[in-house]
Design a protein around this nucleic acid. Structure first.
Length: 436
RNA sequence: GGAACGGUGGCAGAGCGGACGAAUGCAGCCGCCUUGAAAGCGGCCGGGCCGAAAGGCUCCGGGGGUUCGAAUCCCCCCCGUUCCGCCA
């Protein structure tokens, strides 16, 4: 969530920043008002409490001195004040709860350098690498769902039989390819990121920390009996790793990566981009994430984009990098870049990675802080909220689709990209059935 | 699933009706000592709100209650640890 104090102290700047997202600012203005009222009521309550405290001390003293009558008088006065204190306290609490709820659904402020825009149509393309529309042969213009069926490496019918549409099943060389991609994603980042294997069912508060709840509850699977949520991305557990902790600045940046299965209900997207592997309910992904100081964040963002990009490039796939404009950003994003891979069979650019800087938005929800280093000889005073960044290092299904389409030969066989051969026992083509 | 114990500052851990925002230790910061470091000694060392400041109020897992007054007593909830049972 955004910083309430900043909203209070610099309302114009905050409103202007939020305005760039094209959202309705009325609830934000209302929040400023509620905050002023809340603090006013709280101040009145504090004054009354102070009187009660002073009186109570006197009562104790008078009792000791044996002045029972005077004490009784004060007790009565205190009881009267107690009633008004209770009312003021209830009012202040109610206002605070309203503010908290309002704050949870206000999106993050976009970075000053984030491009303005109203929708994804306004996202500037930063670079396009390895793409030549004329270089693809007819043999590559076959959709991965057809290739997968033809080669016996993707069984969509049986996936749907087991779990319904948008649940998929890989087989033989296709299943091995999934495993290889996961391993590749981890290996490419093992130099700097600690590998984590987190739980994939998490508590409500864990989902709230990253901004996935309360606003986007419909997008997540919920295990009602145990009140647990299936994570839509490893970002959720990795961000909450540090919840309620205070780190030393010297520990930052702290970097984590995790391979997990991800679950998304994709409510409201029925029928859109839903064929084959374009959009599925359950998929595998390697996520990279960092806790950083505000100063470290920009460099990390660039590095993380570079890492995701290099992996796609290494696989020999065409891709482009686009920056997300203010009108298309996710709720929690401060600045965000997407990597889209080109899949020639379906002739589509598929989003395979979204790398984002969240400023202190998630960390404020999760209460992850750090103690700044002392620079000028004075003891460090207080704590600061860390910044979080994260992105997909490798999201399997769409990369799988792009590989299968790009590497399909005229004879219908699918060549294994060089980078993946070590992960596939040296095999050169993807085939059905047992791998050895 | 059954039982017991517990949730207090960065960490560990006292406090169990008024003098407690909270002992003590560790960690951290400043200074002394030292060629340097360690040890030792002295000092400092939680967050939020109001206030120009002085200062005031608030927070001891969450909520409710008792009381003139609650970290401390009572009730409900949440979370954790350990033991037993079950199980990969």
């Amino acid at each position: 969530m955004i910083d309430l104090r900043r909203l209070r102290n610099e309302p114009d700047a905050v409103l202007a920043a939020l305005g760039r997202r094209g959202i309705d600012l009325a609830p934000v203005r209302q929040l400023i008002e509620l905050d002023a009222r809340q603090r006013d009521v709280a101040r009145q309550r504090d004054e009354v409490r102070n009187q009660i405290k002073v009186i109570s001390a006197d009562v104790g003293r008078l009792f000791k001195e044996g002045k029972r009558d005077e004490a009784a008088e004060l007790q009565a006065r205190s009881r009267e004040l107690g009633a008004s204190e209770k009312q003021l306290d209830a009012d202040a609490d109610a206002l605070a709860a309203q503010i908290r709820q309002g704050l949870l659904v206000i999106p993050n402020l976009p970075h000053p350098d984030a491009p303005d825009g109203a929708s994804d149509a306004d996202n500037p393309e930063l670079r396009k690498v390895g793409y030549d529309p004329d270089a693809y042969g007819e043999h590559q213009r076959v959709a991965h769902w057809d290739i997968g069926k033809e080669r016996g490496i993707l069984d969509l019918e049986r996936g749907a039989k087991l779990s319904g549409s948008m649940f998929v099943m890989y087989r033989g060389g296709g299943a091995a390819l999934v495993r290889a991609l996961i391993q590749l994603g981890l290996d490419r980042n093992a130099d700097a990121f600690e590998e984590i294997r987190p739980p994939t069912l998490v508590r409500t508060e864990t989902m709230v920390s990253t901004g996935h709840l309360p606003k986007f509850a419909d997008d997540a699977y919920h295990v009602e009996r145990d009140d647990l949520w299936a994570i839509p991305t490893a970002e959720v557990p990795l961000t909450s790793l540090g919840r309620d902790e205070v780190l030393d600045e010297a520990e930052l940046p702290k970097r984590f990566m995790a391979y997990t299965t991800c679950y998304r209900r994709e409510a409201g997207s029925a029928g859109r981009d839903t064929r084959g592997l374009l959009r599925v309910h359950e998929f595998d992904k390697v996520e990279i994430l960092a806790y950083a100081t505000p100063e470290q964040a920009p460099g990390l963002l660039e590095e993380m984009v570079g890492r995701a990009e290099a992996t796609i490039a290494g696989l020999g796939l065409a891709y482009r990098v686009i920056e997300i404009c203010t009108g298309d950003m996710g709720q929690s994003h401060h600045r965000s870049f997407d990597i889209e891979v080109y899949a020639p069979g379906v002739d589509l650019w598929l989003e395979v990675s979204s790398i984002s800087w969240f400023s202190d938005y998630q960390a404020r929800r999760a209460n992850i802080r750090y103690r700044p280093l002392v620079t000028d000889g004075t003891p460090s005073k207080g704590t600061e909220i860390i910044h979080t960044l994260n992105g997909s290092a490798l999201a399997v299904p769409r990369v799988w689709a792009a590989i299968v389409e790009t590497y399909r030969r005229p004879d219908g066989q699918i060549t294994v990209p060089d980078l993946l051969r070590p992960y596939l026992g040296g095999r050169e083509v993807l085939a059905a059935g047992p791998s050895r």
